[in-house]
C-alpha cells in the first residue's frame, strides 16, 4: 500500500475528509470554512482533485446568486479510504516496531 500524494496535502486531506463525511454535494463556502483555506487556495486544490477524478464541481445560480457545489466521486471515496488505511498501517507499524 502506498500514500496518495494528491490526497495527502493538508488542505486536500481536509477537503476529502469533509466531502467523504458529508457524502453529498457541499457548498464552496462550507468547504472553505471546514478546510480553513482562502477562496483562491481552495479553488486551486479543487482543480487538482477534480483533475484526479476525486471530486466533481458544479456551478449554478440560486436566484441571482452564483453557487458552487462539490461532490466526492466513487473513485474519490475509494482513494480516500485507501489513503486512510495506509495512514493507519503506518501508525500500527510504528507501534509494533515494523515501520520502514
Amino acid at each position: 500500500m502506498e500514500a496518495n500524494e494528491i490526497i495527502h496535502q493538508t488542505v486536500r486531506l481536509k477537503i476529502m475528509s469533509a466531502l467523504n463525511t458529508a457524502n453529498e454535494a457541499m457548498e464552496f463556502t462550507r468547504l472553505k470554512s471546514l478546510s480553513g483555506a482562502t477562496d483562491g487556495n481552495l479553488g486551486s486544490h479543487l482543480n487538482t482533485l477534480e483533475g484526479a477524478g476525486y471530486v466533481t464541481v458544479e456551478k449554478d445560480f440560486v436566484g441571482k446568486k452564483p453557487r458552487t457545489r462539490v461532490t466526492i466521486t466513487k473513485a474519490g471515496k475509494q482513494a480516500f479510504a485507501r489513503h486512510v488505511a495506509y495512514l493507519r498501517d503506518v501508525l500500527e507499524g510504528a507501534s509494533t516496531g515494523d515501520a520502514s
Binding site: 493538508t10 486531506l13 475528509s17 469533509a18 463525511t21 458529508a22 471546514l34 486512510v84
Partner: peptide
C-alpha cells in the same frame, strides 16, 4: 486532521 474535519462536518 481527518477526524477533526469529519466531526465538524457532522
Amino acid at each position: 486532521d481527518i477526524e477533526t474535519v469529519a466531526a465538524r462536518s457532522n
